[in-house]
Structure formats: C-alpha cells, structure tokens
C-alpha cells in the first residue's frame, strides 16, 4: 500500500494494526489472494483454450507451427532472468544496499521492456503475414482448417495481449518502486513493498510459462 512514507526513525505500523509483524503478514496474504484471483482470471482463458485444443487437435497443432519458436524461447529466457533480478533486488533491499537495489530494479524493468519489444515485433511479423484476424483484417492461412486456425490465433492474441497488459502494469509498478528506492525512507516499509512487487512480477512470469507452453510448444512437426 502506498501512503506517505513515515519519517519517524522508529517504524510504526498503520493504525489498524497492532504491530509490524501483523501488518507484514496481512500485506503478504492480501497479495497472495490477489494473485489467486489473477490466476483464476488467466484460468478462465486457459480453460477456453484447452477446450478447443482438445476439440481440434490437428488444426491447433498445425497453427502453432506458424509462431516463431526462437523468439518465444528468447522471451521466456528474458522474462525468467528479469524475475531473477527482481528476486535479487529484494535481497539487496533487505541488506540495505541502495545502489545495488536500484541497479537490479532497472535491469528488471529493462528486460521487461525488451520482452515487450520482441513481442511487438512478433505481432508485427504475424500481421505482415496476414495472421492477424483482428478488427476485420483478412486472415491469410496456407494450411488446412483455416477457420479453426483462426480460432487458435484469436486465442493467441487474447492470451498474449492479456499478458502484455499485465507486463505493462508491472513495469509501471516497478517504476514507482524506483522512485521509492531513490527516496529510501522507512526501510521496513520498503522491504514489504519490494516483496509485494516481486510477487506480482514473478507471477506474471509464471503465467507466461503456461502461455508459451500452450501456444508455442504444443505443435505438430513442421
């Protein structure tokens, strides 16, 4: 929670709590519950995908071969590396190392930006191949089952779009954390905030793992 950082030397909990431990536990639990809701949000979309993947196995496996496996792999590696740096920045803030924290945080944000850049490039590439049936654009597909393949690509854009939106939110969030790190007031609060932000960032990574596996990896031999 973002309030006016306390400037008192002795850190105090918010008024509704008895002590800092209670507040830390409450914050953590609140965040995990929020992530549970995020999981159910993605879960609804995943359920839809699984239904169609089960109903149209050949069409979906073939459509998947039209995605760029190398770029997908690169992005997966990038995202997990950014998660690593996020986890390291949490440790750095725990050790009161301000400059190191800032460095790790900026690397995390930078990798997130590169991820989105690559994703955008991929989308553009698919657009130029006629594989973007959005807003009435024509869907040009060489393989069999063009209609089912369009269903696959609809899910591709829905899932990667939803994920990219979460990445964007995460990056704005981390930029706010950059400001908090620069100010460096009330270290216990800062540690709590880092823990919460790290949870969100890693969660977005976990969702990507499943999006990547479902869309890119469950493919036919090309």
């Amino acid at each position: 929670m973002t309030t006016i950082p306390s400037t008192t030397p002795k850190a105090k909990p918010d008024e509704q709590f008895d002590d800092l431990t209670q507040q830390r536990h409450a914050d953590l639990m609140g965040m995990w519950l929020f992530l549970a809701t995020e999981l159910m949000l993605f879960g609804g979309v995943f359920t839809g995908f699984v239904v169609y993947r089960y109903a149209y196995p050949e069409a979906f496996a073939e459509a998947a071969t039209h995605l760029d496996l190398v770029l997908g792999m690169l992005n997966t590696g990038l995202l997990v590396t950014s998660s690593l740096f996020m986890a390291l920045s949490e440790r750095a803030v725990g050790a009161d190392r301000k400059r190191l924290t800032l460095l790790f945080l900026l690397i995390t944000i930078g990798m997130g930006a590169v991820f989105l850049g690559i994703k955008g490039y991929e989308w553009h590439h698919e657009y130029s191949q006629g594989l973007m049936p959005i807003l009435g654009l024509e869907f040009v597909y060489s393989g069999q089952h063009a209609d089912r393949a369009q269903l696959f690509f609809n899910f591709y854009y829905a899932m990667t779009g939803l994920h990219a939106m979460h990445m964007g939110v995460g990056m704005i969030w981390l930029m706010v954390m950059v400001v908090f790190t620069l100010r460096w007031r009330d270290p216990p609060r800062l540690r709590r905030q880092f823990q919460i932000s790290g949870l969100y960032w890693a969660f977005v990574d976990v969702m990507w793992i499943f999006i990547f596996t479902l869309l890119y990896l469950l493919r036919a031999s090309s």
């Binding site: 549970a36 809701t37 159910m40 949000l41 993605f42 879960g43 609804g44 979309v45």
Partner: peptide, 9 residues
C-alpha cells in the same frame, strides 16, 4: 475471490 475473476475473464 475465486469466482469473480472468471467472470472478468
């Protein structure tokens, strides 16, 4: 908490 996000999706 468990149901509403599915409506959102």
């Amino acid at each position: 908490v468990l149901a509403t996000p599915v409506l959102s999706a």
